[in-house]
Design a binder for these strands. Sequence first.
DNA 1: GCGGTGCCGATTGTCGACAAATTGACAATT
DNA 2: AATTGTCAATTTGTCGACAATCGGCACCGC
Lengths: 238, 238
Amino acid sequence: MAESMFSEISTTDLVTQISRQITEAIVTGRLKPGARLTELQLSREFGTSRAPVREAARLLESQGLVVFSPRRGFFVRTLTAVDLRDIYELRIGLELHAASLALERIGQAEVAGLERQIEKLYRLADAGSAESQIFEDFAFHRMLCAASHNARLVKVYDELATEMRAGITLIGKLYDDPHRIAKTHEPIVAALKRSDRKELLGALRDHITVAQEAVVALFHGIEKDATDAQNGPIWHCG
Amino acid sequence: MAESMFSEISTTDLVTQISRQITEAIVTGRLKPGARLTELQLSREFGTSRAPVREAARLLESQGLVVFSPRRGFFVRTLTAVDLRDIYELRIGLELHAASLALERIGQAEVAGLERQIEKLYRLADAGSAESQIFEDFAFHRMLCAASHNARLVKVYDELATEMRAGITLIGKLYDDPHRIAKTHEPIVAALKRSDRKELLGALRDHITVAQEAVVALFHGIEKDATDAQNGPIWHCG
DNA sequence: GCGGTGCCGATTGTCGACAAATTGACAATT
DNA sequence: AATTGTCAATTTGTCGACAATCGGCACCGC
């Protein structure tokens, strides 16, 4: 099991690089839902030809971040309130299952990691951007999923997290009281340490359901606005 | 809210066509794990250039069916016993959650569809290929997931189903008594009709766990074989 | 015989080009 | 005035080509 002396040379694939940049642009809201992804324009921006851009766009399509219409091109996916309900609903099933598995498989180091992450959330609650708070919040839940020691599950969580970030960005802001949010993570880890399954699942379900209801409600507001203004900002490119 | 009167014309995209064909080749075992997907060879077989093949391969990569190594190319993913354990484990969480949601949302027509599907399983048990039995078995569970009315969940199930089909094909055969298998679907629908949550989740968990244990055990055997024969068939291209 | 070295064919990464299709605007017709 | 027909500009779909890189093989010194 001798560790290799050097870390692997990171041959950052051009396609991967491009897909990451587009993903980032979408989840940060720089690319708005419905916006057209013109291959020529993107390739010029990245300084490449169209081929890598197309491949990157295909990747994002199968991840559900963009939709593809043959002969018409790629467009940033327009999330609906129903989509977000589905996403959070699936997340509940996924994360509760992960927590259930974690009860039997989590190690001491992982528990410690979760506790450190909560501390980080507290620190960011005092001094940190909303984006960083959201980011680290997702990181906490990812660690919890990873504690299931089920790689396939974590992969699904990552995809869901990307979609959730995109949705939250559209809303604008969500964290009314980041301190309170940080606090709601504590009973989860506490129950996990006590191996209290019932309490763990209950706390986790409550935690996610609160987020779901907030997001979906706010999103309904957005959709209403977009309908009111006939040609809402949703279809603006930028 | 006026529904569009006509369904969209399905312009079968070349890339989609290719990716479907490759997927089919993998799940039916015509392309074996570890096999190299040479772009030039594939493009010649499909009568196209390399560009669409690359895009199709990227799609399959993000679905986890093939792995990609920069500067080396695409290879059919080699499933391990741990992978299959993870996949079935995730499926349990996913499908139980789907069933739980279905309890509140399933309609009469969907229940009838599930019952018809069980009848179909019985018919195929008497006269039907093993492939068709497996295919329709998956169709039953897909219908169950669809009854959750959560599109995002169904998408994940579809991806899992593809991976499971690939794994089962590698094993060779699984259905010792297809009649018995068909029968084990009945308590699931029965509990669903009675809105008996506890019974539904229990029956479903048992059903999937049986499949998981069978698949993982048989797969361990395969891995053993592959290790015994130094250069096992796993790395044969064909 | 054996481990290391350098070369060669095969394959991937990327690009520019051309054909086909879509979009939007404008003109013609009823 | 509303609908239809036409056209030009833009954009996608696909292709073939070239450079960079990888894997395998013979070669070489020990």
